[in-house]
């Protein structure tokens, strides 16, 4: 691994990134859902819905949601797998995991297991899960190749990987608007609503540093997945990569 990596637009020591990302999410955890709704105009719900529809998860399946935060995906997966299945909601950040647990309890969802873990070292045996998902989490991971490799390892043969993440739009007009919105509006909204401008500045920067659709697809294939395709959502602002372990 390289000695330095990016934290937004900053170059930082590799070993420091994880704690810096933790700082961001410690700061935004209690306003995370509200900010998601405000910043995406509610579109994150549709993106997640599309992810669930793509998953092919069925009753009795085992699902691992990495960087699952406040539990949106885990809740939907829990409904799909039913009482005979298993959903593990995981996050590296204790504050986010705590919000997720609170949310799911408030919404009457039971049976979900909560595990604090790093996507780079997943503490489950090989070939355990039918589906592994990570939504808006991969860009915060220090070693993305390691994380994708770990997700491949814990998936059963025939299992499905879902990576929902901000990506690159190739619509020129949308790109200009999106740049303006990301660097001018988002941090200000973060300041007003969550009293935290810096975290939302980091959000905008980390999106720009994240690999584009084709690069991420190649990373998924390089990890061993036999098939990987992606679907652009909202003009490519977000992309869903689906890998199948065959």
């Amino acid at each position: 691994m390289k000695n330095t990596t990016h934290f937004g637009f900053k170059e930082v020591a590799t070993q420091d990134k994880q704690s810096m990302v933790r700082g961001v999410f410690d700061s935004v955890a209690n306003q995370y859902d509200l900010m998601n709704d405000v910043l995406s105009f509610g579109a994150h719900r549709l993106w997640k819905h599309y992810t669930i529809a793509t998953s092919n998860v069925k009753a009795g399946d085992k699902v691992l949601d990495i960087a699952g935060g406040t539990g949106d995906l885990a809740r939907a997966f829990a409904m799909k797998v039913g009482a005979t299945g298993q959903v593990v909601l995981s996050d590296i950040n204790a504050a986010m995991l705590s919000e997720g647990r609170k949310n799911l309890i408030n919404k009457g969802v039971s049976g979900v297991q909560f595990v604090q873990l790093s996507g780079e070292q997943i503490p489950f045996a090989d070939n355990t899960f039918d589906c592994v998902s990570i939504a808006f989490g991969l860009r915060n991971v220090t070693d993305k190749d390691q994380c994708i490799g770990e997700m491949y390892r814990v998936l059963k043969p025939g299992g499905c990987l879902l990576i929902l993440e901000f990506s690159k739009t190739d619509i020129a007009l949308l790109e200009k608007f999106y740049d303006f919105y990301s660097f001018n509006v988002m941090p200000q909204l973060g300041k007003i609503i969550a009293n935290d401008e810096q975290s939302y500045q980091y959000l905008a920067e980390s999106i720009r540093k994240h690999p584009d659709q084709e690069t991420l697809k190649q990373m998924v294939l390089d990890a061993g997945f036999g098939i990987c395709e992606y679907h652009n959502l909202s003009g490519g602002i977000v992309a869903l990569h689906k890998g199948i372990k065959v």
């Binding site: 092919n56 025939g158 299992g159 499905c160 036999g226 098939i227 990987c228 689906k242 199948i244």
Partner: peptide, 18 residues
């Protein structure tokens, strides 16, 4: 499209390069 039959389910993908 490709129909990929695996793990007791069918995936339908538009990436047909495989």
């Amino acid at each position: 499209v490709n129909f990929i039959c695996t793990n007791a389910r069918i995936f339908v993908t538009t990436d047909t390069t495989t």
